[in-house]
Each structure stands twice: as structure tokens, then as C-alpha cells.
Amino acid sequence: MALDLSFSVLDGARESRVPGGRTIEEIEADFRKPGNTTFSAIFGADPFDFWLGPFYVGFWGFITIISVIIGSIFYFYGTVFQGPYSFPQNFFAGRIDPPPPEVGLGLQQAGEPGFLWQMTVLFGTIAFLGWMMREIDISKKLEMGFHVPISFAVVVSSWLTLQVIRPLALGSWSEGFVLGVMPHLDWVSNFGYRYNNFFYNPFHALGISLIFFATFLLACHGSAILSAVQTRGKNVDPEEINEFWRDVQYYSIGEAGIHRAGALAAAAGILSANLCILFSGWPVQDWVSFWDFWNSFPFWNAL
């Protein structure tokens, strides 16, 4: 059978619509229920299965908040308190460098160069993965698909590519990026020139194109909804918006399709960006001479 990713709306879902909507108290009374978490599915109970104000906690929220606190202490100790300037200046200029190249993939002790970087990256990674797991818990509680945690996993994969996977591939933590507001901009800038010209990196080009495409789609989607609702009020016919798009550009992807296309374009852009980082310095040292293969095809290398 052919691939089928279509869907149908459950009975009663449309009938649940309330003019003007319900208050947040009324909604939460329906949905704030204990149980159905990943931790309780494995261990039978989740000791952190509660809410703090609007926030859901859960086992993974507990892991996340602990990691955020410890990681932030390392980060602000390195950038702000150990920085060379005044505290407000250090917020921008402070930096935490990865270990020097001679350390390789070794682990540094407290006080050795790169220790603060390794600790911040470690707890940052735990916090990001904990946040992803917490989104899975919340999705389960609300009986949603796992599309949000999957999308978040895509951007976590960028962090892992930059700070873990590529340093492992090249055999040195020194390949990770510098932590700090302005220093990380310098790192990005230098990274491009280190491989000669990052604009010639095809995965960089594809990643940028897809990210611009996602932004373009977002403008299209936001403006379509705003124009429909602000003009028609409650008498909107969604087919009218489809017809507007067909007038303008021959095709309307539809109200469900645009959300799928937007999420996919955003994720694809980030995944392509991962490849553009991973391939720099590992198989490819120079994105200009990388294109030599193009000129040396046998059918036109004499030209």
C-alpha cells in the first residue's frame, strides 16, 4: 500500500467548541490528572507528578531544573565572575573556552583549563534531554502526538553535533564551541573562514535556504489567518483562504498541510545545518576546493 499520512478528526472534537472559549481554570480542571508519565510507566509511580503554578514538573522536570541550576552556576561563574571586565560587561564579553587541543578527549579536573566548559556542556545536555522527556510526558498527559518533542529533539541534535559528536569525530573537545555571548559569535565567524569559505558549503546553503523558506511560510500562514479572521470575524470560510492562495500561486496546501510543511521545513533546515557543521574539518577541510570534483567530470573536464 502507498504511504498514508492522512488523518481524520475524532467524533466529538468539533462539537467540543465553546463560543469565546472556556477560562483556563475550567480547562485545567478537565486536564490536570495524575499518572500516564514515562517514569510511572517504568517504575509504577512518579514522585514528581505535580504542577508548580502553571508549570508541570514530573520526574524529567526535576532532572531539568537541577541541571539548569548546576549548569548555570558553572556558566555564570566562568563568564561573569571570572571574566576580565565589570559584571555587566562580562555578561557579553565573558567566555568559557573548551579544553586545549592537547587534552584530546580527556576529562579535566577542577581548576584545569576546560573544566568549566565540560561541566556546563554536560549539564546543558542533560537539561535539554530532560526538557525533551518532559515534553513527552506533557504530550502523553494531553493525549497528543509526539510532534513537539520530536521537533525539539531536532534542535537538541544541533547542540549534540556541535559540542559532542563533532568533537568525538575529530578526537578533541577543543573542537567544541566557546560559551559566551560575543565570543560565540567570534567562534561562528572564525569557523566559517577556517574552512576557507562557508558560503560554498552546500549543506550550509541548503540549511539557510530551508530556514528562510520556513520564515517565508510563517509569514504566509500568519498573514492568511490574520486577514481571514480580522476581515470575516466569525464567518470565515476556510475555502476562501484556499481560493486566495490558488489565485496567487496556483496551489493552497490547506490548513492542516501548512502546519506540517512549516514544521518539516524548520526541522529539515536544522538537520542540514547539522551536516554542514559535522562535515567541516572531518571529511572536508576546504569548501572551495571541495568543488573540484565538479570541474573534473570526464564529460567536460577538457572545457
Binding site: F146, V148, V155, A214, L218, R260, A261, A266, A267
Partner: peptide
């Protein structure tokens, strides 16, 4: 890109 990732994924997860 982040906003569309969040909004698109949220609505995709709630199509049913």
C-alpha cells in the same frame, strides 16, 4: 523557524 516548529508541531500533533 523556532515559532513555526513549535506552532506547526503543536497543531500537527492535535489534528485529530
Amino acid at each position: 523557524t523556532l515559532l513555526f516548529s513549535m506552532h506547526g508541531a503543536t497543531v500537527w500533533a492535535l489534528e485529530k
